[in-house]
Nucleic acid binder design. Sequence first.
RNA 1: GGGGCUGUAGCUCAGUUGGUUAGAGCUGGGGACUCAUAAUCCCUAGGUCGCGGGUUCAAGUCCUGCCAGCCCUACCA
Length: 678
Amino acid sequence: MQRKILVTSALPYANGPIHIGHLVEYIQTDIWVRFQKLRGNKCLYLCADDTHGTAIMIRAKKEGRSEEDLIASMSESHQKDFAGFGIEFDHYGSTNSDENRKLCGQFWQSLRDADLITERSIEQLYDPEANTFLADRFVRGTCPKCGLLDQAGDNCNCGHTYSPTELIDPKSTLSGATPVLKNAKHLFVELEQLRGFLTQWVDSEDSLQTEVANYLKGHFLGDELRDWDVSRPSPYFGFEIPDAPGNYWYVWFDAPIGYIATTEQWCKANNQTLDDWWKNKDCEIHHFIGKDITYFHTLFWPGMLKTAGYSLPKKVHIHGFLTVNGEKMSKSKGTFIAAETYLNQTNPSYLRYFYASKLSQRVEDIDLGIEEFARKVNTDLVGKVVNLASRVGKFAKQTGLAEVYPDDGGLFENAVAAGDEIASAYETCDYARAIRRIMELADAANPFVEHAKPWEMKKDPDRQDELRDVCTVALNLFRQLTIYLSPVLPDLATQCSEWLDEPIKSWEQSRTPLLGTQVGAFRRMLDRVQIEDLEKMIEDSKAESDETTSDVAKQFQDSDQPLKDEPLADEIGIEDFAKVDLRVARVISAEHVPDANKLLKLELSLGGDETRQVFAGIKAAYEPEKLVGRLVVMVANLKPRKMRFGLSEGMVTAAGPGGEDVFILGIDEGAKPGQRVH
RNA sequence: GGGGCUGUAGCUCAGUUGGUUAGAGCUGGGGACUCAUAAUCCCUAGGUCGCGGGUUCAAGUCCUGCCAGCCCUACCA
């Protein structure tokens, strides 16, 4: 039976280019969609740019152009990048569309009618120069709990959390102005009213991976759900709320509705009705998203859909993030690779294959190790799969394919049997499993050619029929593998189609061998990955991230990120500095604190009998044993502070954002404990 | 502290509802072949399945405690 399936990927934000981290999702989705189409299902793949919000507004202002102008050029760049990776949308829209505005209005009215909207005034910081309310991340100031200067609006480096309104001496990062407190009316959705429904939805029917369902139950559904703030006061780039002038829907309200609006645009162009896709029990809706936006899609969104009378997603497929060489993507390491940078150096099929070989149903991060990447592509794709065609290509051009499929020891039939398992792996998004099975088939195919020794047959005029049979087997096994791989490698499928003069259109073709036809001249289908290309790609990415540095700076390639993360503090006089008594101290003991996640307990000596007990948040960065004996610089006149684990009588100075990246200040040789730092 | 997930050969991972000597690919070592993109084929090395208990005739597979790692959340000079 033909299924009717609507598929979406998360809408990329129109605030930056696509990078290889984004592509995990779009490639994952594209593979699934191509698989569904190959199986003969009616499947629609839709996506759009997410265009609203403060960040877009600010960026447009900074670049001196209109928001519309900015999002138009972003959309073009996004679509070009996607096309470069063979990601084939049925339609690519924008959340800034008439259809979306209208649908937002409908959803809004349904929420009103269901009496789910409530109004409350909240106090928020406002930038009087930029004339805008400030989201937490646009405010910095002194931490109200520990006095650290220049901390983010909602938490500081030492881990305190607070409200931006508590910050001491706050500054807007937009204008540098001192924000003022201002009351503003906000509109909220009372999600709590939907808790019963959501609990049931989360639990039922396998719409979510179990770990996700557990997360939601453990984290949100166990308690009363907080109201969801869905409005933002003017100025804001978005849709104004009709019955609350001067207020706009928050970007996360209109973004998912963009899925529907984009469908509507497609429907208009294709003479279909929206309800047939979004209010039809027989239509499955599948969302593919990253783990960071889980709760928007699994709580708010189902709640909105339910209230407005639309179909609920059959499944929300959630994936993890991409790491490169085992670490978070990093601009300074050149592993923050833009789609365009990748395409300039190497082949998109490689990445599609690599991601496919790593993706499972789990919400696990996947790692792109450069060496693993090259090895996998070269050994699996080139060495095993394409080699099968390559090694008999010349012979086959002369012999053509036999009329009757020869005895191949059951290889073809075996691969037909494996087809169901491979299909079900694709269906459940366990691509790693599908690829594993396909490679097992490829592993069995090469020895067949090896043992048949076609190169000997070629020399013997009496054995031309045998040669043709070997070619027939090898090419049919290759064709079968290509069909199985075609959702992942559409380009390879196209090449195979052209070569054998038979379009690959259906999964069913893998069940019957191709016989009795001529074969075109073989052309190389895929080159091996050159490590140098990958290195070049990383070099290029590095270069993009710091094009504006001086010579010495270039030599060291120091990134500007730390300064951006933590801009310079206000000027002070020497008398202010003198208040801080920094001393050289020796670590005389260091130990883990039971129950503390980030802390080490240090005993510091200032010489003689003078010691201080200090708790330092450096557990992730330093082994206690390695600290013992070394000299550090401590703040010695800090007022002792009682912590859960005991009294802390000072502070060890260190640089870095925290976590593993903490670097204790050392001092050159010769310094003695107790000496003051001036 | 609370929640989620993971821990199987050097590396990446398979191991179905518990059932004979724990598997694959890659890497390593040895050999063969030459049709093929230094591709391919054959042979070989290698693991007290994180650790300790328990249930069972039988546990990598179930239960429990601990250890390590990752993520979320709170706390954290």
